[in-house]
């Protein structure tokens, strides 16, 4: 066993990278849930984004185009969910599950020819001056652009929800869709936009996984990341900065267990591999136990079908 191989600075730097996919997916889902919609299809949208982004990046040789394509693919898939739940008033839980199952199938269908290929390398963004700071430089300022994009996105969502009129309307729709409708807000339209934003974020998170973090395409590679993103939103009590905290905590556990595997800790690999999922469960239990029954922080209309009668 050799713990000296674990370099704390490197650990913290990879923590940010390993947290980014779930951070992107979770911040998108947060907006969706704030609008009162529970989309359990995050995993399906993520993996579809992962393969679409990968395929476009390989075909075009441009990872940036791949990321754009992934966001579009995620949004397109979420549109199916939006149409079913908002126009055809289907059950959100069932439809979200269908989205995940469909996305998993579709992605391995598209991904068949892409197994074992290396994607084009994504450029790293070394922020000048800052990246030269000892210790902090390599941890914080030597990442690919998407890491900073994800951080900016958290800030933007926080600002949008807290300080803009549109954000207030979105929250109103999520808290009480009947009242929002009575005030003349277009509940269905707002929810469509929120769902598509969530889909785009999930797609982006998936592509980050296949293009930058791994980088490779393997079937079912998201391995529950979408579900963990859903859990993160609950953990964060629907607050953007807590999503960031949760994602980084989770990223830390993932990186730590991978490092321990590499260092040859006397614990079998399987037990280390299952630790992120167990930690997620424990965190969910802690959060729900602390709040008691009935989640007071959840948007009041979350998951409920909206049907305007007049």
């Amino acid at each position: 066993m050799d713990y000296s191989a674990i370099d704390p600075a490197l650990l913290l730097a990879t923590l940010m990278i390993s947290a980014t996919p779930i951070l992107l997916a979770a911040i998108g889902e947060l907006v969706v849930e704030k609008a009162g919609v529970l989309n359990l299809g995050v995993e399906g949208m993520m993996i579809t984004g992962a393969i679409c982004g990968f395929a476009i990046a390989v075909e075009s040789g441009n990872p940036f185009l791949g990321l754009i394509a992934a966001a579009l693919a995620g949004a397109a898939l979420s549109l199916v969910f939006a149409f079913l739940t908002q126009i055809l008033l289907s059950n959100q839980v069932a439809t979200g599950l269908a989205l995940t199952l469909f996305g998993l199938g579709l992605s391995s269908l598209i991904g068949k020819p892409y197994a074992g290929i290396k994607p084009p390398a994504s450029p790293r963004l070394d922020i000048p001056l800052l990246s030269d700071i000892p210790v902090l430089g390599p941890i914080l300022f030597r990442h690919d652009p998407m890491v900073y994009v994800s951080l900016a996105l958290v800030a933007a969502v926080w600002f949008f929800l807290k300080y803009t009129r549109a954000g207030l309307i979105l929250r109103a729709v999520g808290e009480n869709h009947d009242a929002a409708h009575a005030l003349g807000y277009k509940v269905v339209r707002i929810r469509f936009l929120a769902i598509m934003f969530g889909g785009a974020c999930a797609g982006l998170g998936g592509a980050y996984l296949s293009l930058i973090r791994v980088p490779q395409w393997t079937e079912g590679m998201t391995a529950g990341a979408g579900w963990i993103a859903l859990a993160l939103v609950v953990f964060a009590s629907w607050r953007p900065w807590r999503v960031l905290l949760g994602a980084y905590l989770f990223g830390g556990i993932t990186v730590l267990q991978l490092n321990l595997q590499a260092a040859g800790l006397a614990i079998p690999v399987e037990y280390l591999s299952m630790s992120p999922y167990i930690v997620t469960i424990l965190v969910l239990v802690y959060i729900s136990a602390r709040k008691g029954r009935g989640n007071l922080d959840a948007p009041a209309s979350l998951g409920r079908t909206f049907h305007a009668t007049h």
Binding site: G44, L88, G105
Partner: peptide
């Protein structure tokens, strides 16, 4: 590809949920 049947089954659930609107 073996996975195409999974996409197929997912689609089936989509259509089912979509058509369900006429039940209620």
């Amino acid at each position: 590809p073996s996975a195409s049947i999974k996409a197929f089954q997912g689609m089936l659930l989509f259509f089912l949920l979509a058509m369900d609107v006429f039940t209620d």
